[in-house]
């Protein structure tokens, strides 16, 4: 009997999508455990003991000052060495919504080589100036090689954020990220074409970018919520078009579990 890979789902301080994220990893064949950040910092739980690390969505520290900032700083000051070791060990890491904001502000996304805590891009206020809960079509870049997105081309997921507008530190960096396949997920129209703007691109992101990965594809972050679409009945039109076998987000978690198994 093979044992299921253990996934650490960080929680505490206003993170709020941890339970459904744990459920999603479990549905995909994993063994997810919610780990309170405090317990990871004081060492009573060791993040190195897990095969995958996930930073869920929520409002860590109320998103005060800037979304994800205080949580990111706490990780950097209190768990920085551990995170760098996880990168060396090639542990897959995912950040969703607030977790994505945390990873970007921490500098792990899009990331440097070797990994460091240097922030090069940001996620800031939506152009609308509003938090919105809205379903969006997303497609993967053609040259993407992230383990998290294997086999996926176009998916439909909800966004639920007020600060999801992606801005790269400079235009050259964006080109480099695109060439590397790091601008892995973009908002699109229902037919896959490029959006004219709001609402298909819900926040005004540069290049309609919704998700990023590290150069090695192991660290992946996105504003939309794949854990909010693992069941067919979570799709807002499930009563019109009939139920799919599973929600579009589930494959993302399955990919990571297959990678570490």
């Amino acid at each position: 009997m093979t044992t299921k890979p253990r996934i650490a789902i960080l929680t505490g301080y206003g993170i709020n999508s941890d339970i459904e994220l744990a459920h999603s990893f479990n549905l995909a064949g994993g063994n997810a455990e919610r780990v309170h950040l405090h317990d990871a910092i004081d060492g009573s739980v060791k993040l190195e003991d897990f095969a995958i690390l996930a930073v869920p969505g929520g409002f860590s520290f109320g998103d005060h000052i800037a979304s994800g900032r205080v949580f990111a700083n706490r990780l950097r000051y209190k768990l920085g060495d551990t995170l760098l070791r996880l990168r060396e060990k090639k542990t897959p890491i995912i950040g969703i919504c607030n977790g994505f904001q945390v990873l970007v502000k921490l500098g792990l996304l899009p990331g440097t080589e070797p990994a460091s805590f240097t922030q090069t891009c940001t996620l800031t206020y939506n152009d609308s100036g509003r938090f919105e809960n809205r379903w969006c079509y997303l497609k993967t870049d053609a040259n993407v090689s992230s383990v998290w997105l294997k086999g996926l081309s176009q998916i439909y997921l909800p966004v639920r954020h007020g600060e999801g507008k992606f801005i790269p530190g400079n235009p050259e960096l964006l080109k480099e990220l695109e060439a590397n396949g790091q601008t892995c997920l973009r908002y699109c129209n229902a037919d896959g074409s490029e959006p004219a703007g709001f609402p298909a691109n819900p926040n005004g992101s540069t290049g309609h970018i919704a998700g990023l990965c590290s150069k090695d594809g192991l660290v992946f972050g996105l504003m939309p919520h794949p854990e909010a679409h693992v069941l067919p009945t979570q799709h807002p039109q499930w009563q019109r078009d009939g139920q799919k076998a599973e929600g579009d987000g589930l494959q993302i978690f399955r990919n990571a579990i297959e990678y570490v198994s």
Partner: peptide
Amino acid sequence: RQYDHEVQGQSVVKPFMG
């Protein structure tokens, strides 16, 4: 739309459908 109506992943009939 400005309310998060899907966190906790339970929704079957959301505030807006169609």
